[in-house]
Amino acid sequence: MAKREKITGLIKAALGPGFALMTLLAIAGYAVVGPTGVLAWGEYQAKLETRGIELARLEAERDALGNRVRLLDPRGADPDLISELMRKKLNVVHPDEIIVPLK
């Protein structure tokens, strides 16, 4: 009986530290292999590069649209742009004009 109580006591004594060790190993494994872990770093770098390229493209598009808005300001619109838009949208062409489409 004393031997059985000794084994039970050892199991009870090892249960707390064993659970703590398993918890720490799980946290360490998640830090290395998890979705935001060390192994996901390369994927984040690739996403950062592609998003940087996309950001540059969107900023250039935003700047072009901002310039177009500035040219269409009602207080002082650019006559060439107004004429171009009017001809394109309303299909207004003089009989002596030749239209050369640029693609």
Results as ranks from 00 to 15, higher is better:
residue 61 E to R: 14
residue 41 W to S: 10
residue 1 M to N: 01
residue 13 A to T: 02
residue 33 V to P: 00
residue 2 A to T: 02
residue 25 L to Q: 05
residue 42 G to P: 07
residue 21 L to N: 08
residue 76 G to F: 15
residue 69 V to P: 12
residue 35 P to G: 14
residue 35 P to N: 11
residue 28 A to D: 01
residue 98 I to E: 07
residue 77 A to V: 07
residue 24 L to E: 14
residue 14 A to P: 00
residue 92 V to R: 10
residue 12 K to D: 09
residue 24 L to W: 06
residue 37 G to W: 08
residue 99 I to M: 03
residue 66 G to W: 05
residue 5 E to A: 04
residue 17 P to T: 08
residue 96 D to S: 03
residue 48 L to P: 00
residue 3 K to A: 08
residue 94 H to W: 03
residue 44 Y to V: 04
residue 6 K to N: 05
residue 94 H to G: 06
residue 64 A to D: 07
residue 54 E to H: 04
residue 14 A to D: 05
residue 53 I to S: 02
residue 62 R to D: 12
residue 67 N to M: 09
residue 23 T to F: 10
residue 74 P to A: 13
residue 18 G to E: 07
residue 86 M to L: 13
residue 90 L to S: 04
residue 35 P to Q: 12
residue 28 A to E: 03
residue 35 P to K: 14
residue 11 I to Q: 13
residue 11 I to E: 09
residue 9 G to W: 00
residue 22 M to P: 00
residue 56 A to H: 02
residue 90 L to W: 03
residue 89 K to L: 07
residue 19 F to A: 09
residue 79 P to N: 05
residue 78 D to C: 10
residue 23 T to H: 07
residue 2 A to I: 02
residue 22 M to I: 04
residue 31 A to M: 06
residue 68 R to P: 00
residue 40 A to M: 14
residue 56 A to P: 01
residue 103 K to V: 02
residue 65 L to E: 10
residue 63 D to T: 07
residue 17 P to Q: 11
residue 72 L to H: 11
residue 62 R to L: 14
residue 66 G to M: 13
residue 75 R to V: 09
residue 15 L to Y: 03
residue 17 P to L: 12
residue 13 A to Q: 10
residue 84 E to T: 14
residue 54 E to R: 10
residue 100 V to I: 09
residue 18 G to C: 08
residue 69 V to Y: 14
residue 34 G to T: 05
residue 10 L to V: 05
residue 90 L to E: 04
residue 85 L to R: 14
residue 36 T to A: 15
residue 10 L to Q: 13
residue 69 V to K: 15
residue 74 P to K: 11
residue 41 W to Y: 09
residue 8 T to R: 13
residue 12 K to V: 06
residue 37 G to Q: 09
residue 89 K to F: 04
residue 11 I to H: 12
residue 83 S to F: 12
residue 5 E to S: 03
residue 66 G to R: 01
residue 89 K to V: 12
residue 93 V to W: 06
residue 60 A to S: 12
residue 38 V to C: 02
residue 102 L to M: 02
residue 89 K to M: 04
residue 86 M to C: 05
residue 17 P to C: 11
residue 50 T to K: 08
residue 42 G to S: 13
residue 84 E to F: 15
residue 2 A to L: 03
residue 75 R to F: 08
residue 2 A to C: 00
residue 88 K to M: 03
residue 57 R to N: 11
residue 18 G to P: 06
residue 98 I to H: 06
residue 21 L to A: 14
residue 6 K to L: 10
residue 33 V to G: 06
residue 19 F to G: 01
residue 53 I to R: 05
residue 55 L to K: 14
residue 63 D to Y: 01
residue 99 I to V: 13
residue 90 L to R: 05
residue 38 V to S: 09
residue 4 R to Y: 11
residue 24 L to H: 08
residue 52 G to M: 06
residue 67 N to W: 11
residue 76 G to R: 14
residue 59 E to K: 14
residue 40 A to Q: 15
residue 41 W to K: 13
residue 19 F to K: 10
residue 6 K to G: 01
residue 100 V to F: 01
residue 2 A to V: 02
residue 65 L to S: 14
residue 65 L to C: 03
residue 60 A to T: 09
residue 33 V to T: 11
residue 45 Q to S: 07
residue 34 G to D: 04
residue 9 G to K: 05
residue 3 K to N: 08
residue 76 G to H: 15
residue 87 R to Y: 02
residue 70 R to D: 15
residue 68 R to M: 15
residue 49 E to H: 06
residue 97 E to C: 01
residue 78 D to G: 11
residue 66 G to Q: 13
residue 86 M to R: 13
residue 67 N to K: 13
residue 51 R to P: 00
